[in-house]
């Protein structure tokens, strides 16, 4: 009965949503004076950044990215505080069992390659597809691989929280430096260089590298605290 009711409500909702969106059209420029054209123009002419998505994420809507990084930070903290246990009621049984030698040596070989790929992706965030979030996620998968392969692989919580905090602090401090130098938060205060070179785009590259470090540390910490959740 309940399911029937739910399906009925969803059918009505779906009908209206579909009516609305099928009238929207697909694949043609929909508005004449949108912000998009301005972004595409200024990305090349003023910021000297090749990847428009990066310039939007870090410069035009950089405040969003700051908030987004904070959301991740808060999620990791929330995970820690929700799953917190006092010392004496921690059990001892781990959910993992030992993995075979093939997996161990294979992951040892693959781990540096994965880290290298992640670093490449977040360093070239303003030139090629990708950026801090993507690169950070890739690095975290490398750590996930090691954690699964070696059941006694340990990541120091202190190091993770140092990296995380320092990266966040540098992000905000760069923003505040722009505030002191140019009058607005996150203002670019470095020379913006030549398009399509590695050192271009002013603070955008630096901020995205910091985001990469922060995301990598946060995701690793997240996986780590869930994986070593003793039950």
């Amino acid at each position: 009965m309940r399911k029937f009711l739910v399906i009925l409500i969803l059918a009505v909702l779906g009908f209206y949503l579909f009516e609305a969106f099928s009238g929207l059209g697909l694949g043609f420029p929909r508005f004449e004076h949108g912000v998009k054209d301005y972004y595409l123009d200024k990305t090349v002419s003023e910021l000297h950044v090749a990847n428009t998505v990066t310039s939007i994420v870090v410069s035009f809507r950089g405040f969003d990215t700051l908030g987004e990084v904070t959301v991740l930070f808060l999620a990791v903290s929330a995970l820690g505080s929700v799953l917190y246990k006092r010392r004496h009621d921690v059990g001892s049984r781990s959910i993992l069992f030992a993995s075979s030698g093939i997996v161990r040596s294979g992951s040892k070989l693959l781990f540096p390659a994965i880290i290298l790929l992640g670093v490449y992706i977040f360093i070239h965030g303003h030139l090629t597809p990708g950026g801090g979030f993507q690169g950070g996620a890739i690095i975290a998968t490398g750590f996930l691989l090691m954690l699964l392969a070696y059941e006694n692989f340990r990541v120091s919580h202190h190091v993770l929280s140092y990296v995380e905090s320092l990266a966040g602090i540098i992000f905000v401090v760069i923003g505040l430096l722009g505030f002191i130098d140019g009058g607005t938060f996150l203002q670019n205060f470095l020379p913006s260089g030549i398009l399509n070179e590695l050192f271009s785009g002013g603070v955008i590259g630096i901020i995205y590298v910091m985001v990469g470090f922060k995301v990598a540390a946060e995701l690793t910490g997240l996986i780590y605290s869930v994986l070593h959740e003793k039950d």
Binding site: F97, S99, S100, I102, V103, G106, S107, L109, L110, A113
Partner: peptide, 20 residues
């Protein structure tokens, strides 16, 4: 080369996990 490494290892790990 990357695929040649990673794919067999992951399938091995899957099979072994199922066996365990």
């Amino acid at each position: 080369i990357f695929i040649a490494f990673s794919n067999p290892i992951s399938s091995h790990a899957l099979a072994r996990a199922m066996y365990k």
